[in-house]
């Protein structure tokens, strides 16, 4: 059992006009075996929250805390967090020219597992992982995310999720840019990962269509840098039909 505890988190980003507050007191708990959805308007700070959890150097935490099983996450480096069991599937995965998918995956798996997988087993494991998300094996030789379509990038994020098997996974708009078939393949990948590992999962999304495949236990509404409402799966349906207006207009 693992739990990620975020308490009264405030974070800002450095802009040309000086520091800008984005997260304004986020309190959130993600526990093993449970699935959470965060929905909220554009620019409300959802990706920022995801990046702050992962430790992106662009954001500065000004107050509050994040702990994983009681251990301070904020004092860990980006790679330490990943090795401690945190994973972020990014809204915009980064292209890394000249680094092959195969080399990247093996390096990441070696780092997270603490030892290099045996070569023959590894090749088999990678092939299976690619087949599971219907990614052509030729992608292994391509440069990481370079020239990948939006959907291909998202599939590769989920492939990594399956190989790295984190304790807590944050999926930032993994559903965006996916056609119906890809959405199903990716959702199945997430579900398989959840079922096999019992990890805690946080889905950031704008749409309920992914939530039909991946059932959330809890739905949070995120607006203007904090969570403004929490409910069950039915809240997602209400948000999709009614929008976020009533959450954004209450605040000045």
């Amino acid at each position: 059992m693992s739990s990620l505890l975020i308490t009264d988190l405030h974070a800002q980003v450095e802009t040309d006009q000086g520091p800008k507050d984005i997260l304004k007191g986020v309190t959130l708990k993600i526990e093993s075996g449970r699935t959470y959805a965060i929905m909220g308007p554009n620019g409300s700070g959802k990706s920022t929250l995801a990046y702050v959890i992962a430790g992106h150097p662009r954001y500065t935490v000004t107050s509050g805390s994040i702990t994983l099983d009681g251990v301070d996450v904020l004092s860990m480096s980006v790679d330490e967090r990943a090795r401690a069991g945190l994973f972020l599937a990014m809204q915009y995965p980064v292209e890394v020219p000249g680094v092959s998918v195969a080399n990247f995956l093996r390096t990441a798996v070696t780092a997270v597992r603490g030892e290099a997988p045996k070569l023959r087993l590894w090749i088999k494991e990678m092939k299976e992982a690619m087949a599971a998300i219907q990614m052509d094996p030729s992608f292994a030789e391509r440069n990481l995310n370079e020239g990948f379509s939006g959907g291909e990038k998202k599939r590769l994020e989920i492939l990594q999720l399956g190989l790295l098997r984190p304790k807590i996974a944050v999926l930032d708009e993994t559903d965006s840019g996916l056609d119906v078939d890809a959405l199903r393949v990716v959702s199945e990948g997430v579900n398989r990962f959840r079922d096999e590992t019992g990890a805690g999962t946080l889905l950031i999304t704008h749409y309920t269509r992914i939530l039909r495949y991946i059932k959330p236990d809890v739905v949070h509404v995120f607006a203007e840098g904090r969570i403004v409402e929490t409910g069950g799966p039915e809240l997602a349906e209400i948000l999709e039909s009614e929008g976020y207006e009533r959450f954004t207009t209450v605040k000045s």
């Binding site: 990943a82 090795r83 890394v96 000249g98 390096t107």
Partner: peptide
């Protein structure tokens, strides 16, 4: 690029080296 690699558990120095190697690979 370095952040992305690090976020997959790859230590900073290795991430930087991968990026440099990738730079020359072209």
């Amino acid at each position: 690029q370095v952040f992305y690699l690090q976020s997959r558990g790859i230590p900073l120095d290795v991430a930087r080296q991968l990026v440099v190697r990738g730079f020359f690979a072209e």
